Computed example of a mutant assay.
Amino acid sequence: MKHLFFLMFICLLSGCAEADTLKPFTTDGCSSFPDGTLHEETLWKSCCTAHDVSYWKGGTYEQRLDADKALKACVAKVGKPAIAEVMLAGVRVGGSPIWPTEFRWGYGWSYFRWYGELTEAERDQVEALKPELP
Rank of each mutant, 00 (worst) to 15 (best):
Q63C: 02
H51W: 07
L38I: 14
H51V: 07
K77T: 12
E102C: 04
E40H: 15
D35Y: 12
T37V: 05
F33Q: 02
W99A: 11
L65V: 12
H51N: 12
L43A: 12
G58P: 05
E85P: 00
S54N: 13
H39Y: 14
P97G: 05
G79R: 07
M87I: 03
W99E: 08
V75R: 10
G58N: 03
T60P: 01
E85C: 00
T26V: 15
V91L: 01
R104E: 07
K72M: 11
C74L: 13
A19T: 08
L38P: 03
R92D: 14
G79Q: 09
R64L: 02
C48W: 06
A84L: 07
V75E: 02
H39D: 15
L88D: 04
G79A: 08
C74T: 00
F33H: 07
E102D: 13
G95D: 01
A82S: 14
C47S: 04
I98W: 05
K72L: 06
D35K: 06
C30I: 02
V53G: 04
A89W: 10
L65F: 09
K23P: 06
D66A: 14
T42F: 15
K57Y: 05
L43H: 03
L88P: 06
H39F: 15
P81S: 13
V78P: 01
T101I: 13
V53P: 01
F25N: 03
D20A: 14
K80E: 10
S46F: 00
W44D: 02
L22Y: 09
K69A: 10
K23R: 15
C74V: 09
Y61W: 14
C47T: 00
A50K: 10
V78G: 08
E85S: 06
Q63R: 11
K57T: 08
A73R: 15
R64W: 04
K77S: 13
V93P: 10
H51F: 14
K69H: 11
V75H: 00
K57I: 05
Q63D: 12
D52C: 11
Y61Q: 08
W44R: 04
T49W: 06
A89V: 15
G29E: 06
P24V: 03
T21I: 10
K80H: 09
W44A: 02
V78Q: 03
G58F: 02
R92A: 07
I83V: 12
F25I: 06
A84Q: 00
I98F: 13
T27E: 02
G58E: 06
L88V: 03
T21R: 13
D68N: 07
S46R: 02
G79V: 01
G79K: 13
F33P: 04
T101L: 11
E102I: 04
C30G: 00
S32K: 12
G36H: 05
S54Y: 03
T60V: 09
W56Q: 10
F33S: 09
A84W: 02
L38V: 14
P34E: 14
V53N: 11
Q63W: 09
F103C: 06
P34V: 10
T37C: 10
V53W: 00
L43V: 07
A50M: 08
G90L: 12
V75Q: 03
A82C: 11
G94Q: 04
V78Y: 07
E62D: 09
A67T: 05
G90T: 14
F33I: 11
L38F: 14
G94A: 14
I83Q: 09
T42R: 00
K80I: 04
